[in-house]
Design a protein around this nucleic acid. Structure first.
Lengths: 185, 185
DNA sequence: ACCTGAACACCGTTCAAGT
DNA sequence: ACCTGAACACCGTTCAAGT
């Protein structure tokens, strides 16, 4: 069977990636090492390389699966301003949960480049509602995504008092909404 | 004298930090190591610790001096929209020169927390011109800084064709300008 | 197929010793 | 005051060997 000497069951990719994400959540990017991950899984460090090419591929795996699983607001028919705010809140919630992952994603945007991801589809839908013309959707969604990601990362590191953070978020989202309305005009 | 065995002159903090920044520019954060830096300076790795507490302190030094030296547009009396665009361009230019440094700064905002930095003073001045009320300056400048930093970092990693990048920048700055005008209303 | 230990080439940093 | 070499506790990863 060649199952690990120290544990009963064989490793799974799922198990590897959730544990790795936990390590990143707890200790930042530098909190995740192949050796610590192996220790957390009670396995020899080298076993990991049978499931993953290398550390970079592992982090990419974490990021892309987490991005795919992000809970995003469905189209509930409400005005685009409300839907945009809800999307911003979803980003914010996720960034608070996985700050290191978001920082990594921000530095490696190619990981979520695929426009078929729910993340982009949701943004496209809202931008269409806001009146952004079709040929500008790619550009506008890129800009908005960069803005919101930039904001939630900064917010996460800022350790502001909670009510300040809420007012900051409000300012950010209002600025975007007013800006979009202006662009669409 | 106790000058280095391999080189003539004693190390200076200036020399250390400019060489370190060059290494970061060339190879990202992971391109800068205490040992590579020492090699580039033709010095024993341990000599560095006589000028700098540790690697983190070194990077903080690089970032804060570079932030202080950033060339920002002076108040030339032009409309705030033009001045904001000029400031955005200055950010963008700097981010293209030092992408790794900006990523690090984005993840460690406390390094440039001091509101007396020209960076913040310039932003405050433009926001006042735009009609943002005094008690909202801190919040609005934080949001805007996060947006623009988020954007220029994303832009830097995106390797878009140049003319696409220019149109992206234009969309970003217009969105901010329209948004600010809306907020001030 | 999956796991493992030893080994290699790197890190950051401490410490005691040199001038 | 400034520099240095040896050493320690970490990394990621390769490779040959085990079941």
């Amino acid at each position: 069977m060649a199952v690990s000497a120290r544990r009963g069951a064989p490793l799974t990719l799922e198990e590897i990636s959730t544990t790795a994400l936990r390590l990143m959540d707890e200790g930042g990017v530098e909190g995740l090492s192949m050796r610590k991950l192996a220790a957390a899984l009670d396995v020899n460090p080298m076993s990991l390389y049978h499931h993953v090419d290398n550390k970079e591929a592992l982090i990419r795996l974490i990021c892309s699966t987490a991005a795919q699983r992000m809970e995003l607001p469905p189209d509930d028919g409400s005005p685009w301003r409300d839907q945009l705010r809800a999307l911003g809140l979803a980003y914010h919630r996720n960034a608070v949960e996985h700050p290191a992952m978001w920082s990594y994603l921000h530095d490696h945007p190619e990981i979520i480049a695929d426009r078929k991801l729910v993340l982009w589809q949701t943004l496209y839908r809202i931008l269409r509602l806001a009146g952004i013309p079709e040929p500008e959707l790619r550009r506008t969604s890129d800009v908005l995504h960069a803005f919101v990601t930039g904001f939630v990362i900064a917010e996460t590191k800022g350790h502001l008092p909670v009510d300040e953070a809420e007012r900051d978020f409000d300012t950010a989202i209002r600025l975007i909404i007013e800006g979009l309305a202006g662009l669409a005009r």
